[in-house]
Simulated assay, not measured.
Amino acid sequence: MSKLLTVLDAFDDLPQARDLRELTYDGLGATVVDVGCGSGRAVGELAARGARAIGVDLDPAMVEVAAERWPGSEFHVADATALPLDDGSVTGYRTDKVLHVLAEPEQAVAEARRVLAPGGRAVLVGQDWDTFVIDSDDPELTRSLVHARADAMPNPRVARRYRNLLLDHGFTDVTVAVHTIVWTDASCLPALAGIGGEGAWFDAQVARARDDRLFVAIPFFVASGTRAA
């Protein structure tokens, strides 16, 4: 969990990532559930905007961290497909970098529809694991490492399905946009270690970071829709 938290914190601290989060908060209304809340940053930021924000994560250790970082906020340990919420009890549903780890992400979207009130807004955010762009002196090896990391995920390409998932579960006014996050400093190295592991490839990326020559770009897909009556 500590390695994952390090990667998430490094990403969340990027100004581009902060701007992207702010974009996803628009239109979520007064009561919002953030599914896969991790360390709780979005919950804290939504609460600061005046919403009743509820964080849900399957990992008890993450929920413990979130509760420590954002005292007074509401967090629950629960599965994305079985939220501890009544039908139609929230005006906004948000999930960020979560659906790719689910074997059946369509069940999570069905659950989003259940807990949303009619007219409520769902926002799905995430990366397509095949589309990581990493500058390297060995592009063939880099491509194979990226694809191998993607293939280790239950649903590495689910982000390109976000629009269809929302449409298939009765959402209307569905939109999709792509926002690319660019990393050029050493804060990206924990994420690259998760892709390449120890060895010559990762050592070369460390050297690039030291020489200010690191380049990583990750397109994030943001899909949203309205829960129809």
Rank of each mutant, 00 (worst) to 15 (best):
T180D: 00
T180Q: 11
I181F: 14
I181D: 11
I181Q: 15
I181K: 09
V182A: 13
D185A: 01
D185P: 01
S187T: 14
S187A: 15
S187R: 14
C188S: 13
L189E: 06
L189W: 13
P190M: 04
P190E: 06
P190L: 04
P190N: 06
A191P: 00
A191W: 01
A193E: 05
A193Q: 12
A193S: 06
G194D: 03
G194E: 04
G194R: 02
I195D: 02
I195C: 00
G196L: 09
G196K: 03
E198R: 02
E198A: 15
G199D: 11
G199M: 10
A200F: 09
A200E: 15
W201T: 12
F202A: 04
F202W: 12
F202M: 13
A204I: 00
A204M: 05
Q205F: 00
V206A: 05
V206P: 01
R208A: 04
A209R: 08
R210N: 10
D212R: 10
D212A: 15
D212W: 05
F215E: 03
F215Q: 02
F215N: 06
V216I: 12
V216N: 00
A217P: 01
A217N: 05
A217T: 02
I218M: 15
P219N: 06
P219E: 07
F220M: 14
